[in-house]
Design a protein around this nucleic acid. Structure first.
Lengths: 204, 204
DNA sequence: GCGGCTTTATGACAGTCGTTATAAAGCACG
DNA sequence: CGTGCTTTATAACGACTGTCATAAAGCCGC
């Protein structure tokens, strides 16, 4: 059975609740198949939870589940990013890259970023689904963390914001390219370029 | 009705055949909803072609249609890229960025890149769908064009290859971020950073 | 033990999906 | 006129979808 979710699940908690398992499993499945191809039935089965439970925990249905999956992944990456950024932007960048490299490699190039997957689903006319808004928020959180660290190391605010956007966008795009090519070479290329870029931007 | 396909269709050809309309429409729909959410029925309706015609022109079904849609988009972007790169890597980069900016803006942040959309669909166990392989080929073609131009302007081969990967990945990721945020600001950030990067890398 | 809440279980609804089969229509060529 | 090929039309197949309703089970504090 698909076992990629374990990479995202917080292993410090020994026995996650059924609700947490559903969210983590949904994040994993969305990162593999996209939002539309992820059915609530399989999500429940993947978490060994009954279908009824899904609508018990997420009464607003699929949108709510997707929204929580996006936020879950966002917080998971932000946690790691925040921790590693204490050692500076280069260390944070490396951690961010390694995080997604792990997802891609461990899944044999079958999983990626669920936030990206949700971002490229066409919203219904006239409205913005909560999951899409959550994806925008996650991107902003990641960018904010990176930009803040860059500023703390002497990068001008505007330059820091631009560079943070580039980092997040490049990593997301690179993960997708790695999946298509079934190779980590794009990640190697992007890592080298981004590291040199950050090194040249900071003042220490 | 959705009218984003016109941006991709070659307007120099006055009356595209039914087959071409189906492919262009499929590329547009995949760029909006992803591969799985794009049904053959709607693809046919979108191209004002009967469902039966779809299986007449694409006897291998959805995979074949997706493959041709990916290649179609890849060739369309490569054509523009090749033309603008004659004026140098900076001009090529700008054209590549503007190309996708147009898709995003004209669709009111509802469309993106179908190549990326196909790249993030989980392949069936053990095999690589032709559409996914086509996506990898398109990425490689775009990277090759950019890297070649960079080399012609004095960039070392390895550096050129890495920078080309970064450009393609960043643009793809940025387009997705623009859709989530419903804003072109990510593209502005990425454009500024990539332009400065290319300018600093070339020798003229 | 026992009400009252949370969670699970089961089944059904109307709809869409990819795909195939079969037949009708359009149409160029001799 | 007719023959043969391309294209369209229509219907059907089994499978899957999100969602909801309803009932059973589990489990808490009292």
């Amino acid at each position: 059975m698909a076992s990629g979710a374990e990479g995202i699940v917080d292993v410090t908690k020994p026995s996650p609740t059924a609700r947490e398992r559903i969210v983590a499993g949904a994040a994993d499945m969305i990162s593999r198949r996209g939002l539309n191809a992820t059915s609530i039935r399989e999500t429940a089965k993947h978490a060994r939870a009954p279908l009824g439970s899904t609508y018990h925990y997420f009464p607003e249905g699929k949108q709510q589940l997707a929204t929580e999956a996006v936020r879950f992944t966002g917080a998971w990456a932000a946690r790691s990013l925040r921790r590693e950024l204490e050692a500076g932007p280069v260390a944070g960048l490396r951690a961010f890259l390694d995080l997604w490299r792990g997802i891609v490699v461990d899944s044999d190039f079958r999983a990626g970023c669920p936030v990206l997957a949700v971002s490229i689903e066409e919203p219904p006319a006239g409205e913005t689904p909560t999951a899409l808004a959550a994806a925008a928020g996650v991107f902003e959180e990641w960018e904010g963390l990176l930009a803040g660290s860059l500023r703390e190391h002497g990068v001008e605010p505007e330059q820091a914001a631009q560079l943070a956007t580039l980092i997040v966008a490049a990593v997301e795009g690179t993960v997708a390219m790695c999946r298509a090519k079934r190779s980590t070479q794009p990640l190697d290329h992007t890592a080298a370029q981004l590291q040199a870029l950050v090194l040249g931007a900071i003042t220490d």
